[in-house]
Design a protein around this nucleic acid. Sequence first.
RNA 1: GGCCCCGUAGCUCAACUGAAUAGAGCAUUUGACUACGGAUCAAAAGGUUACAGGUUUGAAUCCUGUCGGGGUCACCA
Length: 596
Amino acid sequence: MKNIIATTLKSALNDLYQIDWQLDTSIIQKTKKEFEGDFTLVVFPFVKMARKAPDAVATELGNYFKEKIGCEFNVVKGFLNLSFPDTVWTDFLKANRDDGNYGYTPMPENEPVTLIEYSSPNTNKPLHLGHIRNNLLGDSVSRILAACGKKVVKVNLVNDRGIHICKSMLAWQKFGNGETPENSGMKGDHLVGKYYVEFDKHYKAEVARLVEGGMEKETAEKQAPLMKEAQEMLRKWEANDPEVRALWNQMNGWVYAGFDQTYKQLGISFDKIYYESQTYLLGKSLVDEGLQKGAFYKHTDGSVRVDLRDKGLDEKVLLRSDGTSVYMTQDLGTAQLRYEEFQPQKMIYVVGNEQNYHFDVLKLVIGDKLGKEFGKYIYHLSYGMVELPNGKMKSREGTVVDADDLMEEMIFQAREKTSELGKDFAGTNVDELYEMIGLGALKYFILKVDPKKNMLFNPEESIDFNGNTGPFLQYTHARIRSLLRKAAENGINYTEASATELGKAEKDLIKAIYEFREVVLTAGNTMSPALIANYAFDLAKDFNRFYQETPIFKETDAAKRNLRLQISELTALVIKNAMALLGIRVPKRCNQHTAA
RNA sequence: GGCCCCGUAGCUCAACUGAAUAGAGCAUUUGACUACGGAUCAAAAGGUUACAGGUUUGAAUCCUGUCGGGGUCACCA
């Protein structure tokens, strides 16, 4: 529809004012509710070239449109509002029944892949609330891109090596007394996390003792025996010490089993998992390459660095003086490996905004310093922190909200809230239902916020069945399905399209559906789950208004009733698809309503 | 201190690309309805878009400065 308007506008501008205008549907917007019309054109951009007053231009254009495509129009202060006949909208409805793919044409076979990395956990502690935002964003963006016909490869980069891992290993070795997930009943990632905390506890105590003995705090932090031991362990690890490697394998195995469980419950998956232990060597060779090219240099202390001061950044260490690799070394290797493997045209990294600087450096080092073409394909999808009502949550300050605990709590709340409302469920798999609602609430609440911004997660508000929440959308969907089922039970046939006049709420709803699909079409570029969530909510609200206007079963005109049922059906489908893009499941049928 | 991000109603968030009177939800107040899932609907109230300049026919949006919040500036990841 917008395309028709745009092409007509192009010829209008050419015929009336001899303006050569580049086709662009973005200047066509839906008319605001307080004005009469379906679509609005802002004519200001053409006023200067046409050398006429805005309203005159708008009126002339309006007449042109009326003549060419037979739509009505009105002009308000330089805005041209176009109104289309009802049949345009009923035709749209007819054309899109059962259409779940938003009208996308799939990309050709040789389409280059879009690679997206998300989750990226460390193997020294369980996942927390921050990872949840990361995972949900990555998962949803992959779904959106895939829905837009892109070839998506979802990857996870497990940070399975480094000093932090050694800390957990060392603490387990020293204080663990042979505790395992099997003999303790503890989830593997939680068990390893426990020893990471344990290390920190003992380490701090050591530092305190040294400081008491008269040592400077800074030197004490470096000289503490535990820290030295951990560093020694890392060197042994890189030197392939069999004992250290065996312990490392064992403990990482526990963690992976734990992560798998968390991912499964969260409903996310990956096509490929990379381990930093397998890419850091490639990274080191890239550092060598850069050294030979003269892009990097060896500092007097033996470390290898890159100087980015000409780009407005600082010096950055790429290799420690003892020759071991740092975070950046690994990321260089990983990027190279991925590029070789998939030749992606885009590499999306879903990583928190505290690493904005890191990715600026990464892009520059790969693109400018090493001169690799894939430097420009790197895109950092940065997101803000998640806070809780009763304070901040930062992984280093110990007030971490564990991902598993949070999910359990959400599911529990779903149960509480539902029984509070006096609902009775006749279905057998209520547990699955509570899980859908609880996780739906969590996912929706986090995804509806612009990723860039820090956000506040309020569990209680998220699980409300009213307002801009996942459960509200799930409910609306279920209610429509139920309505359609009821109609079918009563033998009301609503499969035939029928021409009839549209009421305001009906037209608004169809327009909302149309608008929503337009948004999804652009979502592949904007990669914004938030946009989809908010539009889906508007749609659900429009449905309620529509539903309230004329109760469907009171409608005696059969054609009208058919039409209303069709609109309902398409609305349900669109809501379901929107939720699918957010990775949220919708129950088909929630419950039987009790008489009381 | 340098660099980056954010600041919108009491609270949580929108505003896709610069466009009409800045929109929702929650909370508050008032009213309506029961053939279908009321977990609803209608309405009221709530704003100098942190502040000051600038660009523009038009600014929450772009530019400059100030203030406030967060992040980052590790041989941590």
